[in-house]
């Protein structure tokens, strides 16, 4: 099956990915440079590496707490989002539903409001409900923030699936939840995995709501990183170290999900 062209393209893929990621190499290098080397007149490639910035990131910026907060908020909100999005997307994509089109658009349109405008009303709402600076408040906001997106992505993937298996299941008398859980879920694994990853990513990266709705108990990673920008200098070392630290758990998650995506493909091929 492997043609010479494909082999050539495979080598190309490795090269392209390596070049694409070059800026990351620079960030990783910055994280182990002494500060005066970072501020040297020309970019430096040779230096005595130091781990002081990693130390600073954890000691002074309490990064472990930020990682924990981010993990709790993002994981819980992703699970809730995915559950709600899956049943909604199934209804919108595969069930006989009047006005499914309009409904989908309504759901998406609730994400049109620029975050900048709603940050202030969100803050006021959080204050009334006593949810400022709490994990719960952030989870609610991120579920609302991620849902429209997740519904649309999943709906796209579900629309793509062949209809025959589901038909057979219906004829066998399976209920809706059984169909979603036992038939659609395995068939759409790769789509669900991708949707979950990106629901996760959007919450993981989100800055503005986290900035206004948290102050110390529920501070997330992006806000903690923003504290490394001083008015008079940027703490490049700790900042780069923070980027590297926050990437490690993410990479593990994505790598594991990748394997699921391949498994999803294998299951899909059986159909």
């Amino acid at each position: 099956m492997r043609t010479p062209l494909r082999r050539f393209l495979d080598v190309g893929a490795v090269v392209v990915v390596a070049v694409y990621l070059a800026p990351l190499y620079w960030i990783a290098m910055t994280s182990v440079k002494p500060t005066n080397v970072i501020n040297a007149p020309k970019p430096q490639f040779a230096f005595d590496p130091t781990l002081e910035h990693y130390h600073t990131t954890f000691e002074r910026f309490d990064f472990a707490q930020a990682i924990l907060n981010s993990a709790i908020i993002v994981i819980v909100s992703t699970i809730i989002t995915m559950f709600l999005a899956l049943i909604s997307a199934y209804a919108l994509a595969r069930m006989k539903m009047r006005g499914a089109d309009g409904m989908s658009l309504l759901i998406l349109s609730l994400r049109f409001m620029p975050g900048v405008v709603i940050a202030l009303p969100y803050f006021l709402m959080a204050q009334w409900t006593g949810l400022t600076d709490s994990h719960l408040g952030m989870i609610i906001v991120y579920v609302a923030y991620g849902l429209p997106f997740a519904v649309w992505l999943l709906r796209g993937f579900l629309l793509d699936l062949p209809r025959e298996v589901e038909e057979a299941a219906r004829l066998d008398g399976l209920g809706w939840f059984s169909i979603i859980w036992r038939i659609m879920l395995p068939m759409a694994t790769s789509g669900i995995a991708v949707t979950a990853v990106f629901t996760f990513v959007f919450a993981w990266n989100e800055f503005l709501f986290a900035l206004y709705l948290t102050s110390y108990k529920a501070v997330t990673i992006p806000v903690q990183i923003a504290k490394m920008i001083d008015l008079y200098n940027v703490l490049w070392g700790p900042l780069s170290a923070a980027v590297v630290i926050q990437l490690v758990p993410m990479l593990i998650v994505v790598f594991l999900i990748q394997r699921h995506m391949i498994r999803g493909l294998a299951l899909g091929a059986v159909k």
Partner: peptide, 28 residues
């Protein structure tokens, strides 16, 4: 492609998405 180690490549390529824009913007 079905190349060996493609999982690693696919993992690596998504790294940019995982960096919070605050840090990424500053580094750029």
């Amino acid at each position: 492609t079905t190349m060996r180690g493609i999982g690693i490549l696919r993992t690596l390529i998504v790294i940019p998405v995982f960096i919070t824009p605050v840090a990424l913007g500053l580094s750029w």
